[in-house]
Design a protein around this nucleic acid. Structure first.
Length: 744
DNA sequence: TTGGTGACTTAGAAAAAAACGG
DNA sequence: CCGTTTTTTTCTAAGTCACCAA
């Protein structure tokens, strides 16, 4: 069962991060002597012989490629660096001849990843533009002039004071501490000169906030044409960075933009959230290029940090981010060949697991009884990963959110109750709550009890003999390359295959019905993987609206049926089923529907009035008088009165009956309503079911795309309905290689 | 045996774009 | 057509896992 709302789920308590305590629990050790813990490690590297991919002879320059593109060459007056022309003219369509169907040609399995790589470097965010002089941070009631470096940081906070982040005390503390550092380094407040900013509480960011809001509003107000023009300009700037040339082929780059400075938005209860993520300069960046590829020109006045030529990796550029000193990469887009190949390999590996899963399951079932503590822990962990799709669960540091996976589960994360019920309650990746009450294998239950046995207490690790690398080493004994995460892929895709196998779909069903079933299957997988999303702010009201809408449709249908009876009262006895619902729909309910209709009308007229007058104001025309609005509202009211009278008296208005027309016409209309109501019901349920489940993640990462292609072909559902454009590009290999008989 | 770190995949939120409905 | 809602794309955080050095 998926739990309610995510806000609800996010951890609130700040339990201390426990160091990994390895309990050398004597007692357990005595009971279960640690002996032969050798994991069978067959490092058999069976290499499949793959067709070697053909080397591209000459390195094409971006410029050459551009010229061979089917796009007519435009004359440009921009400055050219001589051997590395700006790639502005490369078009995304590309030539058909440079499409590279690696899945048809076979995959090279060696260490070397590529031969040549050429690109234009990375795109930097625009420099900071100081605020207009009248927009200032107000400190202790006094507007202060800040040096631009500090103003920028204050602005990062100011623009988001209405968000949850900005209300989080940890976020505030980290932001303020970094802000003070920046301010100090920049020489302190400019005016009034001796102002010392020491208290967050005395900072008033509202002027900054308003300023950014106004700007946002202005941007929104731009006309369609203006927006289009801006977008074109943006696209033109981006053009050179969007593509690179890999082994002579044009390939898309993914995140070619360097991350702009900002306040770090950590997920969940993150100790470092709100810290300043500083601006990245060319000097911080390491570019990776092919041997002999020209070095792109760094921004004026700057130098690249380093030029590397490493063809064993798949990144084009990297830099170190300041908060954790971790590496950020500029990489290929999801539709690139290298990504496609890895993706393909990932799924093939998961499919390979099919051939080993029986042995693995047998083994861990047996080892759940092992007298050796280590073996017992391995067995239980493998069970949890296999059955509940837990992640491996690596160790985490003091300055990270307290989240866990299988190996890092602690005492307090599972609750046991006889005979074999387990409640998992912990925060997983991204601080998403994993909450499940389940029944487990009797022997698993016993083992978990053992793992929780005294002297273990809150904060201690359940699997004190394990970590992911130990577990993975054990798994490799069954199958080369097998790791914990492969189980997630395997079980997700297996679930999807099973779901599709058991689908009751007739070819003549509507596409919409088929899609609903596909989504239901997708949802099973998402639930297995615990992929969630926060329920949207207006979810409740939108459900309410949809319900009202359905009620309205039903009411309309009932009116039609009443009309039918009016014409031919004999029908009521003849067709009981048809008229059954009339008596079911009570007076109060009818009145509710009428009121709803009326309310909507009122809102509509008010809006219409406001809009019309705004337009007139702009054209300096005469404004509509308030009486006009009154007039409209009166029409609405009159209509409401008519309906109310109808409900009260039980007689339809003459007008309506006239409009309904012949019996045949009414019957047709009723049928149409039947259809609409049914569709509305199904869609409402689908939406309800999806409200906190996120289908995308499993579709993108876990479900073998060839399953969707198979579904598409087998049931004649256009692939466009299953995969968005980006996804189709990412999964071209699957679309072109699977047929209706393909199996995971 | 561990701890750091580099390189890659996976993840939900937020922004942007497209579709919807009055 | 226009404002709203829904879907798609972008963004970047947060995992996994291999490898290396001490």
């Amino acid at each position: 069962m998926v739990s309610k709302s995510k806000d609800h789920q996010r951890s609130t308590g700040g339990q201390p991060l426990k160091k990994k305590v390895k309990l050398s629990d004597q007692k357990i050790d005595e009971e279960i002597p640690l002996s032969k813990l050798k994991a069978k490690n067959k490092t058999d590297k069976s290499k499949k012989n793959k067709i070697k991919q053909e080397n591209q002879q000459d390195e094409l320059s971006l410029n050459t490629l551009m010229k061979t593109s089917n796009e007519p060459q435009k004359v440009k007056n921009e400055p050219k660096s001589e051997n590395f022309d700006s790639a502005t003219n490369i078009k995304s369509e590309g030539d058909s001849e440079d499409s590279y169907k690696w899945w048809e040609e076979g995959i090279n399995d060696g260490i070397k990843k590529w031969d040549t790589l050429q690109h234009n470097g990375v795109m930097f965010p625009p420099p900071y533009e100081p605020l207009p002089t009248n927009v200032k941070l107000i400190y202790d009631g006094v507007p202060v002039k800040l040096p631009p470096e500090a103003e920028e940081v204050a602005g990062f906070f100011g623009v988001m004071i209405n968000t949850d982040h900005a209300k989080n005390p940890v976020f505030q503390k980290n932001f303020f501490s970094d802000f003070k550092k920046v301010l100090k380094k920049a020489g302190g407040v400019i005016e009034p000169k001796d102002t010392k900013i020491t208290s967050f509480k005395k900072c008033d960011f509202s002027k900054m906030f308003e300023y950014y809001e106004t700007k946002r509003e202005e941007r929104k107000q731009l006309s369609r044409a203006e927006k289009k023009k801006l977008k074109e300009e943006r696209d033109k700037m981006e053009e050179p960075y969007k593509y690179c040339i890999l082994d002579g082929r044009k390939e898309q780059v993914g995140n070619f933009r360097v991350e702009p400075p900002s306040l770090f938005r950590g997920r969940g209860q993150h100790p470092r959230t709100g810290s300043l993520k500083t601006r990245v300069y060319p000097e911080d960046i390491i570019l990776n290029l092919g041997p002999g590829s020209p070095i792109p020109e760094p921004p004026a006045g700057h130098k690249w940090g380093e030029i590397r030529r490493d063809n064993t990796v798949q990144w084009l550029a990297m830099w170190k981010e300041n908060i954790f000193n971790s590496v950020k990469y500029v990489r290929f887009a999801a539709n690139s060949s290298l990504k496609g190949i890895s993706d393909y390999k990932k799924f093939e590996k998961a499919r390979e697991l099919k051939n080993h899963i029986d042995v693995i399951r047998e083994d861990y079932s047996k080892n759940l009884r092992s007298k050796v503590m280590f073996e017992r822990q391995v067995a239980v962990a493998t069970y949890l990963i296999d059955v509940f799709a837990l992640r491996a669960g690596g160790e985490k540091g003091e300055d990270e959110a307290d989240t866990v996976g299988c190996c890092s589960l602690r005492y307090e994360h599972i609750e046991l109750s006889e005979p074999n019920n387990v409640t998992f309650d912990f925060l997983g990746k991204d601080s998403i709550r994993f909450y499940q009450k389940v029944e487990v294998d009797q022997q698993v239950f016993k083992s978990l009890k053992l793992f929780k046995k005294s002297p273990k207490k809150k904060g201690d690790q359940l699997f004190d003999r394990l970590d992911p690398s130990i577990l993975n080493k054990h798994l490799q004994g069954y199958m080369p390359g097998l790791t914990a995460k492969v189980f997630r892929t395997y079980n997700a895709s297996k679930t999807m295959q099973d779901q599709i196998d058991s689908m009751d779909i007739k070819l003549e069903d509507t596409v919409q019905e088929k899609l609903l079933k596909y989504n239901a299957a997708n949802r099973e997988v998402a639930i297995l993987c615990n992929h969630q999303k926060t329920v949207s702010k207006n979810h409740e009201s939108s459900i309410q609206k949809a319900n009202d809408k359905i009620q309205e449709l039903i009411w309309q249908r009932i009116r039609l049926k009443k009309c039918l009876l009016q014409i031919n009262p004999q029908l009521k006895k003849k067709e009981k089923a048809l008229f059954f619902e009339i008596d079911d729909f009570k007076k109060e309910k009818e009145l509710e529907v009428v009121e709803n209709i009326y309310e909507k009308e009122v809102i509509k007229y008010n809006r219409k009035f406001k809009n019309e007058n705004e337009k007139r104001k702009e054209n300096s025309e005469e404004l509509l008088a308030d009486e006009k609005l009154q007039e409209w509202l009166n029409t609405a009211k009159e209509y409401r009165d008519v309906l109310i009278k109808e409900v009260e008296s039980g007689n339809l208005s003459e007008e309506f009956i006239k409009k309904c027309g012949s019996e045949e016409k009414i019957r047709n209309n009723i049928k149409k309503f039947d259809q609409r109501i049914q569709v509305a019901f199904i869609q409402l349920k689908d939406r309800e079911d999806n409200s906190q489940v996120s289908l995308g993640t499993s579709k993108i990462n876990y479900i073998d795309p060839r399953l969707s292609v198979m579904f598409s072909k087998k049931f004649n559902v256009p692939i466009e309905r299953l995969f968005t454009k980006t996804l189709r590009e990412k999964f071209t290999w699957a679309i072109e290689s699977a047929d209706e008989n393909w199996r995971f």
